[in-house]
């Protein structure tokens, strides 16, 4: 697996608190091409700690690309240059000896920077709380095979449901719009029979909270799709647009 080590210059965003002014701190580092970028940060932190300096605060958990906790902007791209790859799965073999990297947090008004590379993405949870569910109580479910769902529909719903909620779509968007995230969740339920009874209430409730949480509007640049580590399609946004329009035509609730 391993080849020769490479030397990189890393400029990493440091910011003590939400109010503090941030700046780039420069690190020169020799690293193994098999290491992931987060392991490079681990190493830098280990050295900083050893020297008695404050380590770089950043979030990560599963390191398998599924929990959505990690998310750095590397040279202007959320999750770095590799398509369909979360930050934790970005290995240094994708960079060349002598490269310079700028590592920053996701930037958006809706994502407040808490410290260094950690941002507050709680807006996403608020949107989900507003309607990202099917209303029924535990214990009342019929047999799983009573609801027949074509393989194609199930696959499409899963394509949307794969969203890991990392926020890269917002970070990539020049408008900081969360429509790919919301579109994906709306679509998962809009595609499945289980989601039909609340289909139009759901989309209205979720869009309302999305708008309240300072996310921008979509202008169809599709940067979100290009940077999404799960490759969630912008077709989901179209579906949400359609459902939202239909909802406003159809329902009389949710004033």
């Amino acid at each position: 697996m391993s080849e020769k080590n490479i030397n990189l210059t890393l400029n990493i965003w440091r910011q003590e608190s939400p109010e503090a002014k941030g700046y780039f701190e420069k690190f020169e580092k020799e690293i193994s091409p098999d290491a992931s970028i987060l392991e490079v940060l681990d190493e830098i932190n280990n050295r900083l700690e050893f020297e008695g300096k404050e380590p770089i605060a950043f979030e990560s958990d599963c390191r398998e690309g599924i929990c959505g906790a990690c998310g750095l902007v590397i040279n202007g791209q959320p999750h770095g240059p590799l398509p369909k790859t979360a930050t934790c799965q970005l290995h240094m073999r994708n960079f060349k000896d002598g490269d310079t990297l700028y590592i920053e947090p996701f930037r958006a008004t809706a994502f407040k920077i808490l410290k260094d590379l950690i941002v507050d993405r709680s807006g996403f949870d608020k949107i989900q709380v507003a309607g990202g569910f099917v209303s029924f109580n535990t214990g009342s479910a019929p047999d799983g095979n009573v609801i027949l769902i074509s393989k194609e529909m199930a696959d499409q719903a899963l394509d949307a449901a794969e969203c890991i909620g990392c926020g890269a779509c917002v970070a990539a968007c020049k408008n900081s719009s969360a429509m790919l995230f919301v579109g994906a969740k709306v679509s998962q339920f809009a595609l499945l029979p289980q989601g039909q009874p609340e289909r139009y209430e759901r989309v209205q409730a979720m869009v309302k909270v999305m708008d309240e949480n300072l996310f921008g509007s979509c202008t169809n640049t599709y940067a979100c799709e290009a940077e999404c580590p799960k490759g969630i399609s912008v077709l989901n946004i179209a579906r949400m647009n359609r459902d939202y329009f239909m909802a406003k035509l159809k329902t009389g609730t949710n004033e």
């Binding site: 400029n11 780039f24 902007v73 040279n75 202007g76 791209q77 240059p81 700028y102 920053e104 930037r107 958006a108 008004t109 809706a110 990539a172 968007c173 020049k174 408008n175 900081s176 719009s177 300072l214 996310f215 921008g216 509007s217 202008t219 640049t221 599709y222 940067a223 290009a226 940077e227």
Partner: peptide
């Protein structure tokens, strides 16, 4: 105007051409 407010700060490296037209 609203979108500018939603996204006031730019990244150090502009990589827009990598993900949009």
């Amino acid at each position: 105007w609203e979108n500018k407010k939603a996204n006031p700060e730019k990244y150090a490296v502009n990589a827009n051409k990598e993900n949009s037209t």
